[in-house]
């Protein structure tokens, strides 16, 4: 499975003629039990691929919403071993939905790259996105993951020019994650025409599917992106639902899964209605 699971999912969606909907949640947010109910419910709510955040103490690429989610998860005792345990449990009931972990380098380095790759593969993880690891420094991790058939998914941003896209695409696996704004998660929104141009550039540099994330907060916006990219990632809008539910003393799981269902529906109907 692993890289193959990601490839199979994108291939199937290409045959359906639609983009993947990929929700992002922080593993363990707001606590292990609630996070499990959210994770377990994501495929049924319409997630084609799941990005599971590894909580980190210093998430410098994230806006305030995801910072708060990571802080909640860490305060509730989540750690790397806990995230992988969550994944293990997920794979007992779902073997077809690809899951990629998204996080920062230090906790992974701390585990040891080979040890991390081995335990992640055992837990049923399919790929990894490391936001603070540039391609110039990524070979050791790419080697470790490659030995377990796990994908190291690379990030491109609006400041990534054509020459650099070639560097990003080299050794990339699974898909390329295009960050649609210059900035952190969940704050700004770029216009669809600009994103379309940049996605076209990324497609010219890689044969891999191109997913777009950062700054997609509404179903309407998700549908717009679904018309131009192979995948749509929504994170802050979901983590914000958790914050709001907690503030109202309500169970966040149903609210998050409702939002996922609405957005997944928008992505599914984007190309037929648009």
């Amino acid at each position: 499975m692993s890289i193959a699971r990601i490839e199979a999912r994108f291939a199937a969606l290409a045959r359906e003629g639609r983009a993947a909907f990929a929700p992002y949640v922080v593993a363990g947010d707001p606590d292990a039990e609630t996070a499990w109910r959210i994770l377990e419910g994501l495929p049924g709510a319409g997630a084609d691929l799941i990005e599971l955040g590894l909580p980190f103490s210093d998430p410098m690429a994230d806006g305030p919403t995801i910072q708060r989610g990571a802080a909640r998860a860490l305060a509730a005792g989540m750690d790397t071993a806990g995230v992988l345990a969550l994944m293990h449990r997920f794979r007992t009931s779902d073997t077809s939905t690809p899951v990629v972990l998204m996080g920062y380098y230090n906790p992974i380095l701390n585990c040891g790259l080979d040890a991390f790759a081995a335990t992640a593969a055992d837990a049923g993880v399919d790929g990894l996105i490391v936001v603070d690891l540039p391609p110039e420094e990524a070979d050791p991790l790419a080697d470790a993951l490659g030995a377990r058939d796990l994908a190291l998914i690379r990030l491109a941003t609006p400041t990534t020019d054509e020459a650099r896209l070639a560097i990003v695409a080299h050794r990339s696996a699974g898909f390329v994650y295009f960050v649609s704004v210059t900035g952190v998660t969940g704050v700004k929104e770029a216009d669809a025409a600009t994103i379309a141009t940049q996605v076209a550039l990324a497609r010219a540099a890689t044969r891999l599917p191109v997913a777009v994330g950062f700054g997609i907060r509404t179903a309407q916006r998700a549908a717009e992106i679904a018309r131009i990219a192979d995948g749509v990632v929504v994170g802050s809008a979901l983590v914000e639902e958790i914050s709001q539910s907690l503030a109202l003393n309500r169970d966040p799981a149903p609210k998050v899964l409702d939002t996922v269902a609405t957005m997944a529906q928008a992505v599914r109907s984007a190309r037929t209605s648009g």
């Binding site: 210093d58 380098y105 230090n106 906790p107």
Partner: peptide
């Protein structure tokens, strides 16, 4: 690794 530099860091057993 923190803030783009590989050096010594105060960190817990999980790399936080």
């Amino acid at each position: 690794v923190l803030h783009g530099a590989h050096s010594y860091l105060l960190q817990d057993g999980d790399g936080q």
